[in-house]
């Protein structure tokens, strides 16, 4: 690790000011950034911790949905969202291990947009809205490929607004070593239709499986997926599974998630 400055502001405005310095980076749990810094793969001049900003923390159920502060730890979501959005709480409770869940935050995860992370699938399947210090971004336009989002330089995720689906379920098929999602699927059923989001599988990061959404909106049963298939092209192929395997898993997991709803 190289030397860096560390600040922990108490408000979003202070954080934005601190981030104005060249090579400053926000720190919202640090479950990816800190290991990278320890490996000397990232060298920010300043870390601006968002964990001291109370306004960014908490799980707030509201009309038709739940709003989760950007700096809310996974373990808090797992505990406090359980009554209002159980599938989301279960997803949060299955990220990493207890140490990760008590440090990592939803905003940090979404801003990083790891192609195998869990939260992006929940946000995309829920049709959630990402609230930042300067605007609101619909999930469908937030994720723009592996480790890429619509966020501007220095923009901070302050909250995520989740509508509550009638039924939802997340199934993560774990990569054996990292236990990130080798492939993970969130199925969310709303009155206006079903949304299916897939993480871990595509070279473009999290994506919606629109054919399945159409079929399931028509008939919310696993059998509705018969005849559908996901093309292997564009799927991640690595030590742990081929593109064809991941494409197969998308269908299997979607069916099982529907079954579990």
């Amino acid at each position: 690790m190289y030397n860096f400055d560390f600040v922990k502001p108490a408000t979003v405005d202070e954080a934005l000011a601190a981030l104005a310095e060249e090579d400053a980076l926000p720190l919202s749990g640090g479950q990816t950034l800190i290991p990278a810094m320890k490996q000397r793969l990232n060298a920010p001049s300043r870390l601006v911790s968002l964990l001291g900003i109370d306004a960014l923390k908490g799980v707030c159920p509201g009309e038709g949905g739940v709003t989760i502060g950007g700096a809310t730890a996974h373990a808090v979501v797992a505990r406090e969202a359980a009554a209002v959005y159980p599938a989301l709480a279960a997803l949060a409770g299955g990220i990493g291990d207890p140490a990760v869940r008590n440090r990592g935050t939803i905003g940090g995860s979404l801003a990083n947009n790891d192609p195998a992370a869990c939260y992006p699938a929940a946000v995309l399947a829920s049709g959630a809205v990402i609230v930042t210090d300067r605007r609101e971004i619909a999930a469908d336009s937030f994720f723009q490929g592996m480790f890429t989002t619509d966020l501007e330089e220095g923009e901070i995720i302050t909250a995520v607004k989740f509508p509550i689906p009638e039924a939802a379920h997340y199934l993560k098929f774990e990569q054996p070593a990292s236990r990130f999602a080798l492939t993970g699927v969130v199925v969310a059923k709303f009155a206006e239709g079903v949304r299916v989001a897939v993480t871990g599988a595509s070279e473009d990061g999290v994506f919606r499986w629109s054919e399945a959404e159409a079929a399931l909106s028509d008939s919310f049963r696993p059998e509705a997926l018969e005849g559908l298939s996901v093309p292997a092209e564009g799927m991640i192929s690595d030590l742990h599974g081929s593109g064809a395997y991941r494409a197969h898993l998308v269908k299997v997991l979607t069916g099982r998630a529907v079954q579990a709803c």
């Binding site: 599974g241 081929s242 395997y245």
Partner: peptide, 8 residues
């Protein structure tokens, strides 16, 4: 015998 290998 990883899942991917068994499935394949």
């Amino acid at each position: 015998l990883s899942p991917a290998r068994v499935w394949a």
